[in-house]
Amino acid sequence: MTNSKTQSLPHWGINHKRIALALVFLALLGFIDATYLTIAHYRGGIVPCANISNCEKVLTSQYSTIAGVPVALIGSLYYFSVFLFTFLSITRKNERFLIAASAIITCGFLASLFLIYLQLFVIHAICLYCMLSATITTVLFACATSLMLVKAKNKKLQMV
């Protein structure tokens, strides 16, 4: 209890670092996916998309932009921030970045749920790239949440 600085870090185990690395990797995947759609949006080209989904219908729907800003671009920025924060949590060995990333991921997860709802029940078409993004965010959410739960548990243990 004499040195509070070192005590904020003791539960940074190797497994936590692995999960943080997984978050970095997933955020990167999501970033590539969203950036691809953003570029396609601004280029005005059409995204090659397998028969099982109807990307064109989704990506050109009125829900594909919010006040002129493509949802894909927001997705890119979201994944970029997640990538940056999780990356910094590793390079700076600082949990605060991870907590910030978890908060952003939670927002992203809720947004993904809404976007899936729009695809299934409003647009009645599915876009593979959007579903891929939703899957990535769901896994991100699961990882981040479990990390936060472990952290909360460790803190409690510490306090006891």
């Binding site: 005005g44 080209g45 059409i46 995204v47 090659p48 998309c49 397998a50 028969n51 099982i52 990307c55 064109e56």
Partner: peptide, 20 residues
């Protein structure tokens, strides 16, 4: 190789070419 590689993408790919 791009538009023939995955079945089903040809239509949208070709439309993209037309646009470009």
């Amino acid at each position: 190789t791009r538009w023939t590689f995955i079945p089903g993408v040809a239509g949208s790919a070709i439309e993209g070419y037309a646009k470009s």
